[in-house]
């Protein structure tokens, strides 16, 4: 699959979309970032993070530090869940 290139997501773009479209738009942008960190678990981690509020997800897309912290949290929850 060719990696898709998306323009940065803005709050106004999100506001114009339906709720399920909003999560999809965020997911399409989050996934490649998470995939770069954890290739094997990127799908699961992205799915977990999409349960977070959109406003916070937008901040994470713009802040690698915030994203990394949430990815780490998600990993720990995932490992506990699978244990």
């Amino acid at each position: 699959r060719e990696p898709a290139v998306y323009e940065p997501l803005s709050a106004s773009m999100l506001a114009a979309a339906l709720p399920h479209e909003q999560k999809q738009m965020i997911g399409e942008r989050l996934y490649p970032l998470i995939s770069a960190l954890h290739t094997q678990l990127a799908g699961k981690i992205t799915g977990m993070l999409l349960e977070i509020d959109n406003s916070e997800l937008l901040l994470m897309l713009e802040s690698p530090e915030s994203l990394n912290a949430k990815v780490q949290e998600a990993l720990e929850v995932l490992q506990e869940h699978q244990a």
Binding site: R1, H20, K23, Q24, L30, G43, L50, E51, Q82
Partner: peptide, 22 residues
């Protein structure tokens, strides 16, 4: 376990299954 249904996995270009719960 081997059959873990949570979390719903996201795959690029595929509608996210977790959307059902929103």
């Amino acid at each position: 376990g081997s059959s873990v249904s949570w979390p719903p996995e996201f795959h690029p270009g595929v509608p996210w299954k977790g959307l059902q719960n929103i």
